[in-house]
Amino acid sequence: MRAADLPDARFRVGDRVRVRAAYPPGHIRTPFYLRGRTGRVIGVHGAFPNPERLAWGEDGLPPIPLYEVVFAMAAVWQGDGAYGARDSLAADIYEHWLEEAAT
């Protein structure tokens, strides 16, 4: 399903979002190092079955919107890494892992 087919998506390109600082068990496709970090939506990939449910052999429906979110490297590592001032990192994050961030 393409982005244009997602009128119900909660976030739009340009929105500031925070990855939930949650640590549930199981098959999670939100990298640990991004939990609690703030970034910006740069793309809406479409909606996909929830991998956390697929991992249990379920159908993962309804599909969940998947966003491309970009983070400044400095916001991700907060000094605990080696990167240029402009360097960034983008990851694909499912909607239920995102919350609105203060602008």
Partner: peptide, 12 residues
């Protein structure tokens, strides 16, 4: 030059 790392985490 901005280095942008793409972490391929999901269905893309």
């Amino acid at each position: 030059v901005e280095v942008r790392v793409l972490d391929s985490t999901a269905d893309c």
